[in-house]
Design a protein around this nucleic acid. Sequence first.
DNA 1: ATAGACCTTCCCATGATTGGAAGGTCAAGC
DNA 2: GCTTGACCTTCCAATCATGGGAAGGTCTAT
Lengths: 131, 131
Amino acid sequence: MNIGAAADASGVSAKMIRYYEEKGLIPKAKRRESGYRDYGDVDVHQLRFIHRARELGFSTERIRDLLRLWNDRKRPSRSVKKVATAHIAELEAQIARMRGLLATLKHLADSCDGDDRPHCPILEDLGGDAR
Amino acid sequence: MNIGAAADASGVSAKMIRYYEEKGLIPKAKRRESGYRDYGDVDVHQLRFIHRARELGFSTERIRDLLRLWNDRKRPSRSVKKVATAHIAELEAQIARMRGLLATLKHLADSCDGDDRPHCPILEDLGGDAR
DNA sequence: ATAGACCTTCCCATGATTGGAAGGTCAAGC
DNA sequence: GCTTGACCTTCCAATCATGGGAAGGTCTAT
């Protein structure tokens, strides 16, 4: 299977497949005599794993861990759960931070009339003054 | 005021001050004979504005708009509110997306025992199979 | 044989930020 | 007046994940 077919089959773009290879996430692909990379079903499976993990917001580094665990049939599920919960905590922290921003922004926007007059609490807040 | 002092006074690092200048967010700073950039209170004020806007998650491009409005005493508050609400919508979309991921991840993590045994629904989901 | 679709590597760009190197300037202390 | 150390300058590089494109080689169907 050429890289393009593997891309279609996995949902990972050809560009990113090469990137993951370069980053050592996946082993270097076999090459044909022409130099073309050649992929099999196992490779596509691995790529789909990566694709799904990216969809769930895991970073490349975290996916590296997950792949190692995935390929180790004897890993304790504890190890996997640890990676997942770490990611969950990160997501929760990020969401909490954004909700804070959102609350501040909404408050500011609510207090801004949004009409033709120049008076605007949003800019006053940003400027930290009472212009 | 040297760039370092302006950085301390505004909360924006010297590196980022140069970056904002290069990107045209702030006008090119006056230079002394030595070539050192020289800042006044007005500049620091502008930088604090940027700093605060970054804290609220506005992008550089969006801040460019806000600064233009800030410096225009006659802008209608409507224009400002528009920029702010656009940003609010973006934040909300981002949060919604992350909450979706979070729900999936929590569900997966909950169904994983997290013990010594290798069976793990998290990896099964990522792999899209029933290994 | 030729066209067109595919592949290769290499470089560049994004956005915000930091790090560092090489070299010039300034202020304080001796 | 000179040295020292803290500051400044520009330029280059790296981060992370991704896409764009150029120059050139390969494959396949007509």
